[in-house]
Design a protein around this nucleic acid. Structure first.
Lengths: 204, 204
DNA sequence: CGACTAAGGGAACCCGAGTTCCGATAGCCT
DNA sequence: AGGCTATCGGAACTCGGGTTCCCTTAGTCG
């Protein structure tokens, strides 16, 4: 059996290696936000990052891998959820945060590009799924707290409720292309709460 | 002012031109379903379609334009909605149809590729939005009928309800990657009905 | 049915993304 | 501090996607 050589950057992750990764991920985010996933070529990223073209090809190899790494990096910096004492208010805050993110020019384009990456590349897909798993888990507490307070039926699936808030917003963002407003956010949250109260997401 | 030359294929749309378009769109669908949008290069499509490479580049030019044309072609063949006499049943049928489509190996991959195309190319995006507008309009009748029967509150936005059924299914398909089942379909429909009954999508 | 010309297609060409090779730089361990 | 070597990076190379040129085929109209 041959000793599998460690992935480049994993043996000496500090110092210069870390600086290169940071510069490359920043440049990759810029390119994705400005021109989309189809324009993410590694030579251009290297140029912008002020880094050798060879380095980017050696460490990441494909646009999909680079997008996946950026997603994993983004997953580590999650914004804290709210805790107002009312599920309706908490989920409304969550919905408005999603709308604000998708409506922001840079963030909106970046998310479009990252979703496109995940639909083109298996590694990016896994990274995107991890990213949303983290985001959903972060807000699931709002729902479990609410069931304990008796605001929602017992055994309500918290992940399903949180996902139900984002779903219509992403559907408008991706599938129908309708511009999002705070009204959409409020309705998305209200719909999720109404369905949860009706017991749609109770276990079995 | 120079006379803008008509787009190739628009002056003599019949006969050979139509056959070429059909063969190219079929080949494009095959490539998208098998290898995804990032693998959609026009030379490969021309080879599979048994058509000159030059022809494909002249008539479509970019992968995005080709994907857009395929979407417009798909939008013309819409499946008829159900009319069971109960919104809950109609929307459940719709949800199960969506799940069946996204779960089907070929269709699922094809839709992933087409959504990716729409996130990479403006023309493909417009075509995708038209496609879903057609699909939603087709099923909106279920909701308007239901409001007339008194099953749902008056002035309920029919498009919003139909979109709310698909939204969580696409969210699972794209964002979280969770595999879809008929249970997901039933819950999506039930959630939409519960929210509609609660008046979430009543006008103003 | 014949003419006009839109559309198709073969072949050579070009250019830049991606690869390879090897020397330079700088983490990390003792 | 010193040495080992992981990692970076410049430069030359290749290979195939995309373009161009021009001839051939076949719709469309009278």
């Amino acid at each position: 059996m041959s000793a599998m050589p460690a992935a480049p950057g994993s043996v000496r992750p500090g110092g210069r290696t870390a600086r290169v990764r940071e510069a490359v991920l920043r440049a990759a985010g810029d390119v994705l936000a400005e021109a989309g996933f189809e324009a993410l070529d590694l030579a251009e990223v290297a140029r912008r990052a002020g880094v050798g073209k060879t380095t980017v090809y050696r460490r990441w190899g494909t646009p999909g891998t680079l997008a996946a790494d950026l997603l994993d990096d983004m997953a580590t910096s999650s914004a804290a959820r709210t805790d107002t004492g009312s599920v309706a208010d908490d989920l409304r805050a969550n919905a408005r945060l999603v709308v604000r993110t998708l409506t922001d020019p840079r963030q909106g384009r970046l998310f479009k590009a990252l979703i496109a990456a995940s639909l083109c590349d298996a590694q990016a897909a896994e990274a995107l799924h991890r990213f949303y798993a983290v985001r959903i888990a972060e807000w699931a507490g709002c729902v479990t707290d609410a069931t304990e307070r008796g605001e929602l039926p017992a055994a309500t699936d918290p992940h399903a409720v949180v996902a139900a808030v984002s779903a219509p917003l992403y559907y408008a963002f991706v599938n129908t292309g309708r511009p999002l407003t705070d009204t959409d956010a409020d309705r998305a949250a209200a719909a999720a709460v109404a369905a949860a109260r009706a017991g749609v997401w109770q276990a079995s």
